[in-house]
Simulated scan of single mutants.
Amino acid sequence: MTSILEPEVTLGVLHDRANRFDEDLLPCRANNPELWFAESPADVEFAKALCQTCPVQSLCLNGAVDRREPWGVWGGQLFLQGKVIPRKRPRGRPRKDAA
């Protein structure tokens, strides 16, 4: 998905770019890293919101798309089986009545 002019966004490239910033500006480093791989839909939404102010958000997202990340929050989006999905569904059966 990267063009000829853009190198592939590997995790190493992302790590090197992120190292140019103070860790306090990088939500995934300033907070518990497990938040980005949480089971709770509320925690996943919180991680996505934290990504919105990250200085490497677009690089992180583009790299995750290129690598087809299997799961987790990358660049403010939730990935499952290599694809962006809108939200994490809670465990268990869906409600029978309209919420």
Rank of each mutant, 00 (worst) to 15 (best):
residue 91 R to F: 06
residue 45 E to T: 08
residue 52 Q to S: 07
residue 8 E to P: 00
residue 10 T to E: 06
residue 60 C to Q: 04
residue 75 G to N: 05
residue 7 P to N: 06
residue 42 A to M: 11
residue 55 P to Y: 04
residue 38 A to F: 06
residue 39 E to C: 04
residue 61 L to C: 03
residue 54 C to A: 10
residue 91 R to M: 09
residue 77 Q to E: 15
residue 79 F to I: 10
residue 94 P to W: 09
residue 99 A to E: 02
residue 72 G to W: 05
residue 29 R to K: 15
residue 94 P to T: 10
residue 21 F to S: 05
residue 52 Q to T: 09
residue 1 M to P: 00
residue 26 L to G: 01
residue 9 V to I: 15
residue 97 D to P: 00
residue 50 L to T: 03
residue 24 D to H: 14
residue 19 N to E: 09
residue 33 P to H: 12
residue 76 G to P: 04
residue 49 A to I: 00
residue 86 P to N: 10
residue 43 D to H: 12
residue 96 K to C: 00
residue 10 T to V: 07
residue 29 R to H: 06
residue 48 K to Q: 14
residue 89 R to Y: 00
residue 6 E to L: 08
residue 94 P to S: 13
residue 37 F to T: 09
residue 7 P to K: 11
residue 16 D to G: 08
residue 87 R to L: 08
residue 17 R to P: 00
residue 21 F to H: 12
residue 30 A to G: 08
residue 18 A to F: 01
residue 23 E to P: 02
residue 80 L to K: 15
residue 43 D to F: 03
residue 94 P to C: 13
residue 90 P to V: 03
residue 14 L to N: 11
residue 98 A to H: 04
residue 84 V to Y: 01
residue 41 P to F: 07
residue 11 L to F: 09
residue 42 A to T: 14
residue 61 L to E: 07
residue 59 L to N: 04
residue 26 L to S: 02
residue 69 E to V: 07
residue 37 F to A: 12
residue 26 L to P: 00
residue 51 C to L: 03
residue 5 L to T: 12
residue 22 D to R: 12
residue 14 L to K: 10
residue 86 P to F: 12
residue 68 R to K: 15
residue 87 R to Q: 09
residue 23 E to I: 11
residue 99 A to H: 01
residue 7 P to W: 03
residue 7 P to C: 06
residue 87 R to W: 04
residue 65 V to R: 15
residue 22 D to W: 04
residue 86 P to H: 06
residue 47 A to Q: 13
residue 74 W to L: 03
residue 77 Q to M: 11
residue 47 A to C: 15
residue 77 Q to W: 10
residue 39 E to L: 14
residue 69 E to P: 01
residue 28 C to E: 11
residue 81 Q to F: 12
residue 82 G to E: 01
residue 70 P to E: 14
residue 70 P to I: 13
residue 58 S to N: 08
residue 85 I to P: 01
residue 20 R to C: 02
residue 33 P to T: 12
residue 41 P to R: 13
residue 84 V to H: 02
residue 42 A to Q: 13
residue 19 N to S: 15
residue 47 A to P: 11
residue 71 W to G: 06
residue 59 L to E: 10
residue 80 L to R: 15
residue 86 P to L: 12
residue 64 A to T: 07
residue 74 W to D: 02
residue 40 S to T: 09
residue 85 I to Y: 05
residue 7 P to V: 05
residue 99 A to K: 02
residue 50 L to V: 02
residue 88 K to Y: 03
residue 42 A to H: 12
residue 56 V to E: 09
residue 92 G to R: 07
residue 79 F to G: 01
residue 10 T to A: 08
residue 93 R to H: 06
residue 29 R to M: 03
residue 49 A to N: 06
residue 35 L to P: 06
residue 21 F to L: 04
